[in-house]
Design a binder for these strands. Sequence first.
DNA 1: TTGTAGGCGTTATCAT
DNA 2: ATGATAACGCCTACAA
Lengths: 331, 331
Amino acid sequence: MVESTTTIYDVARVAGVSMATVSRVENGNANVKEKTRQKVLDAIAELDYRPNAIARGLASKRTTTVGVILPTITSPYFAAIARGIDDVASMYNYNVVLANSDNDEEKEAKVIESFLSKQVDGIVFMGSSLSESVRNQLVGARTPVVLAGTIDGDKELASVNIDYHLAALESTAKLLEHNKKVGYILGSLRDAENVERMVGYQEALEDAKVDFDESLVFEGNYSYENGRNLAQQLLDEKISAAVVSVDDVAVGLLNALQEKGIKVPEQFEIIAGSNSPLTQYSYPALTSVNQPLYDLGAVSMRLLTKLMLKEEVTDSQLILAHELIQRHSTK
Amino acid sequence: MVESTTTIYDVARVAGVSMATVSRVENGNANVKEKTRQKVLDAIAELDYRPNAIARGLASKRTTTVGVILPTITSPYFAAIARGIDDVASMYNYNVVLANSDNDEEKEAKVIESFLSKQVDGIVFMGSSLSESVRNQLVGARTPVVLAGTIDGDKELASVNIDYHLAALESTAKLLEHNKKVGYILGSLRDAENVERMVGYQEALEDAKVDFDESLVFEGNYSYENGRNLAQQLLDEKISAAVVSVDDVAVGLLNALQEKGIKVPEQFEIIAGSNSPLTQYSYPALTSVNQPLYDLGAVSMRLLTKLMLKEEVTDSQLILAHELIQRHSTK
DNA sequence: TTGTAGGCGTTATCAT
DNA sequence: ATGATAACGCCTACAA
């Protein structure tokens, strides 16, 4: 048996109709007599015909494919968002092309180029920061773009975010109830989202009439090891509670503190920032801000479909609600 | 400024050559005079021309895209593999289309259809089991396929796996050094990989002249909660050590045991099966079998490139080495 | 309701 | 070394 691709012409021949009719049947065009439709369907089944999406893409200029760029799929944080994106994408019959950027500007640029070249119908971009050049690349593209969990200061691009500012404020306020010195441990302040958190932290202090002390803020922490190493520094500063924006860091801190004999939450309170599964596995389980990550992805993708299908969108700068999940690392 | 796509013809016109020449330059064909090449390059830069990969795909029958199917990207296990796949894919200039199947046979079938329709150059399939129909679909495809961490009993499809059998045997043997009753906690026995583990477990018992006791085996456990719930059952069976193939379950068990006042590893030893970051974050950190997940993905993708480029492959059934990482949940 | 024919933007095969 | 000119497989007016 010769393995050559069967095309729409083959189906047409077998069904005894023209290829246009086959195309109509494939695309659910109503203008086809039921009897003809059946003949075509039979021929399709008989030949095991499968439309070539590439040819279709070339002719129709739509690929039903969206590109997704994220720092790394290995992070539970981005994986959760990606899952939300993927579910909604499948719901709308889009395929997802995934690319890891490692937060590297060059890779980001290269991936975007590649996506545009492949004629994706839309792009979801995630990155802890948005460089000027990448931003221009995205704005200049004729393809719809949505930023997920990524802040565009100029608000020119559509985006879906979580209210980091408010989350930080609330978390800090809660710890301030029982503590005088509340530390804040977060990632790089070059990332807009962390700046927002920082502002939230300061506002909470202000509300509680506590002076801001720079030495209680620890920037640039992302790993479990970072968290472990921070423990002693916090104790030296007489800090007795901390908001930790990255979960891995929070767990590292928790474990290191306990190894030093510090009781959590009795002697030290912790609020983690992402509510990843990690926070439930630690002992004691960590009180945590629940960022609706899956929803963030799902909503981003939904917004993108609207943009792609040219549906009306009233607000293209969305903010999702978060919540504080009380576990056992706070009093 | 009118936003119409600029094609290879536009470049040809501006450069004053034929489109064939532009195509040659684009594809690095040597048969182009240096001076001509430069003219073309200038025109490309001037017009900001970007080749249309869809048109190229249609004409060349190659899309430089591979499809990846996995149960869920949300699992750190599959995320690590996916990362390995993606890195090697980018290295070879392929894009990765990702699809979550949720281990659902229907979704798997649908996704494979969609991939084939999109003319992917190759497919990496991951699933805890391989149903007969999906297997046929894969075998019948004219597209190269590699199974990653998925066992095909008939060994007809190319695959890359970890030696679950040996890993289980070694882990069990280690626990048998200090314990009489060693439990085994694993996922569904309908999955080939778990059957392999089971056999390894039994062989280790045999080697140590310990009778196999069915009630020491706990099947179908995947979640943290499963692990927690198992703690009392294990203690009731007087089990004092267990190999736990899923890390989440291991952490759950660990935490629940400690809440009951059981000291790990003094009174109970645990070996986890996947060495995900979780095992390092728990307290005490879990001794764990290190499955080379990233490598599994990388090697799978490398094998796939060979298949796609029709390079010679001597062995298409690869087994990767694992190792036991000693931490603090074993004596 | 159905068929014809001209793209879509490349690659690739022949000529020249 | 370069240029015409068919494919590639489908969509979509436009005709019939």
